[in-house]
């Protein structure tokens, strides 16, 4: 079963995503801040995909991405954001969705990314 890390500061959202993904047959790990997410990843945790919230206090989505880059983690990342702007589009992620998300559409994308047919991120 693939492992997915969900990062969001809103516990309600973490709950929804966790329940949905578990029901869809994934192992789920959650982090309610950017710092926790980076900590999990830096410990060498084997994660197949990261769902990342864009706007978080202190270390936000962009910060987490920078940290992952430094850690040379190449796990695919799906970004969740409140508003899609030019800056969001510039971020180096595999997919982004604007909240609120159609969970089934997101699930399709996740399965596509996990099937391995994606260009390697630089």
């Amino acid at each position: 079963m693939p492992d997915i890390l969900i990062v969001d500061d809103e516990h309600e959202i973490l709950y929804i995503l966790e329940r949905f993904l578990k029901k869809s047959g994934f192992n789920v790990i959650t982090a309610d801040s950017g710092e926790k997410a980076v900590k999990i990843m830096s410990r060498g945790k084997n994660v197949d995909l990261i769902i990342l919230d864009h706007r978080m206090p202190k270390l936000d989505g962009a910060g987490v991405l920078d940290a992952l880059k430094t850690l040379k983690v190449k796990t695919p990342v799906v970004l969740l954001t409140g508003s899609i702007s030019k800056d969001t589009k510039k971020l180096d992620v595999d997919a982004f969705f604007m909240k609120p998300v159609d969970l089934h559409v997101m699930l399709d994308k996740i399965r596509e990314l996990l099937s391995g047919e994606r260009p390697e991120r630089v």
Binding site: I16, L17, G82, S83, K99, P100
Partner: peptide, 10 residues
């Protein structure tokens, strides 16, 4: 607003 909307829709 989109966060609470996400919760409701989710």
């Amino acid at each position: 607003v989109n966060n609470p909307l996400m919760v409701v829709a989710g």
